[in-house]
Simulated assay, not measured.
Amino acid sequence: MCGHCGGPIDISFARDNPGIEPILWAGFPGEEGGNAIADVVYGKYNPGGRLPVTWYENGYVGMLPMTSMALRSVESLGYPGRKYKFFSGSTVYPFGCGLSYTNFSYSLTAPTRSIHTHLKKLQPCRSMAYSICSVIPQCPAVLVDDLSCNETF
């Protein structure tokens, strides 16, 4: 099955059908999209094949109005979160799902040096899940989008 659609749609019927094995999604393929898809299908190029979006089930659109722009869930209104970071419900395909003929290896590296950042009064520390590190910092994470930094890591 090959899909040429602008955004993710509920294709549970295809995912759950044993007669349909590969599903190729090509977002906005553009003028040369057909040639690009052929290059991938025939093995001339391997782009990695990871989904850049979460594919929600069709019931998702009824869970919140399209005028709701909050990314995090709004429990008082019963709105689920948006994006792979904040939505914990059932999905057709999650963000990052996909196949590749390439082998990847991931590892965490420690910084060679650290920079001390003075936190503002209302800037709370945020927790992070550490599964590999044995030493957990006192303040593992903080939102620093509004801070300016003149040093390079």
Rank of each mutant, 00 (worst) to 15 (best):
G78C: 02
L147S: 03
S148K: 10
K83M: 12
T102A: 14
S90D: 11
G3N: 08
I11C: 11
P18L: 12
H118T: 14
G43T: 03
D39K: 09
P47E: 01
D146M: 11
G6M: 06
A14P: 10
V74W: 04
F87T: 01
F87V: 03
G62K: 14
F13T: 07
P124K: 12
E151R: 10
T102M: 15
E57L: 09
T102D: 12
T91L: 02
G33L: 05
A38W: 05
M69R: 12
S73K: 09
C97R: 13
S73W: 01
G62I: 00
A110Q: 10
A36N: 07
G3M: 14
G7C: 04
C2S: 13
P80Y: 04
P47S: 01
C125E: 03
A36L: 13
F86C: 05
G33W: 05
F95G: 00
S134K: 12
H116N: 13
S88N: 15
T152S: 15
Y84C: 01
H4I: 14
I115P: 01
M69A: 13
C5N: 08
Y45C: 06
G81P: 08
G43F: 02
G43L: 02
V74C: 07
G43N: 04
Q138E: 14
Y45H: 06
P137H: 00
G98T: 07
Y101W: 04
V142R: 04
F86P: 01
V61E: 15
L108Y: 12
F87R: 01
S105N: 05
N35L: 06
F104Y: 15
P18F: 02
S73G: 06
C2Q: 11
P124N: 09
I136G: 00
K121T: 14
G3Y: 03
Y106M: 02
G30Q: 09
A129I: 11
R15F: 05
A129F: 03
I11Q: 03
